[in-house]
């Protein structure tokens, strides 16, 4: 990947982080750290890989992203809003009664959300069903499924890990957001998953392990996965829960957090400064950012 593209995607990821933080800070509580850990992945998917039409969310040949860890809704909503699926102003309605943006992704409420998730383990199965439907219908689209590592406690996930290779679903990439934490503590403390890559390989998945905050690594891993035929691909992403905001990263228990106004201010400041610094680098390299809804506001 050339530096210019990398910078543009980093900038997009930074925007997603900023809008995600703003959204949750506005509400005062939410699943913020687990949203921040997938921000870089969403930037690469929606910023360069996915074949989508935000103005036509139900375009039948679109690529699909299923956020199986449905509590990362805020990150998905920021991404979709920036891509123009719905007005940016909706982000301030997160999780309020009657909102189109509930805590967990809901396909019936949010344009651009293809599958409802939140009851963990189901998104991967439904995503595999969609990928199978694409095969049956002869549609050449990709399905990207994002699993939390804590989510991999669910037995259904392992049923799905068996199902996809059996049905040769090479139109699927599953990402494991391996941030090593779940609600009650570390994944090692609660229900140790061990080496996910080894396990997935043993399940006959094409498996890669990468730094989930490295834009270039994410992009290259997706390209490598697309080249695999006859079996599904998994990308284990080593990530940090709360990535981008040190204060959140360092919280011992940070699945669902309350944000005091001080914390919100500090977090926003960190992210805004990082974003401004990145904007400066983009200017230096004469890089045009990925167009977003913010350009029009």
């Amino acid at each position: 990947m050339d530096t210019r593209k990398e910078l543009a995607l980093k900038f997009f990821a930074s925007q997603i982080r900023l809008e995600t933080f703003r959204q949750v800070a506005n509400l005062g509580f939410g699943h913020l750290p687990g949203s921040l850990s997938v921000a870089d992945l969403l930037a690469v998917l929606y910023g360069s890989k996915m074949n989508i039409r935000p103005e036509e969310p139900n375009w039948p040949e679109r690529d699909i992203m299923v956020m199986s860890k449905g509590h990362a809704g805020p990150a998905v909503y920021s991404t979709l809003a920036l891509k123009g699926y719905f007005p940016m102003s909706w982000l301030m309605t997160l999780n309020k009664l009657g909102t189109r943006l509930p805590s967990h992704c809901d396909r019936l409420l949010t344009p651009g959300v293809d599958m409802t998730a939140g009851s963990l383990g189901q998104g991967i199965s439904a995503g595999l069903g969609l990928a199978l439907a694409h095969k049956v219908k002869g549609i050449d689209a990709k399905t990207y499924i994002v699993l939390g590592d804590g989510e991999c406690n669910e037995g259904e996930v392992w049923e799905a890990f068996l199902f996809a290779p059996q049905h040769k679903l090479d139109n699927v990439i599953v990402f494991i957001d391996r941030n090593l934490k779940q609600l009650d503590g570390t994944t090692a403390e609660v229900l140790s998953l061990g080496d996910m890559a080894v396990k997935l390989e043993a399940f006959n998945w094409h498996t890669q392990t990468i730094d989930g905050h490295d834009i270039v690594a994410i992009s290259e891993a997706i390209d490598a996965a697309h080249a695999v035929k006859g079996r599904p691909s998994a990308i284990v992403m080593n990530t940090i829960k709360g990535a981008g905001v040190k204060e959140l990263e360092e919280m011992e228990i940070n699945h669902h957090i309350r944000l005091s106004s001080d914390m919100s201010e500090r977090g926003m400041k960190v992210l805004e400064e990082a974003h401004a610094a990145l904007a400066e680098v983009l200017r230096e390299h004469n890089v045009t950012p990925i167009p977003t809804a913010l350009d029009r506001e």
Binding site: R107, D114, M115, G121, Q122, S125, A126, G127, L128, G129, L130, A131, L132, A133, V136, G155, E156, E159, A160, L162, F163
Partner: peptide, 12 residues
């Protein structure tokens, strides 16, 4: 469990 959610995906 997987079958029922896969079926949901096929429906989708």
């Amino acid at each position: 469990a997987n079958m029922m959610a896969v079926a949901a995906g096929l429906s989708l």
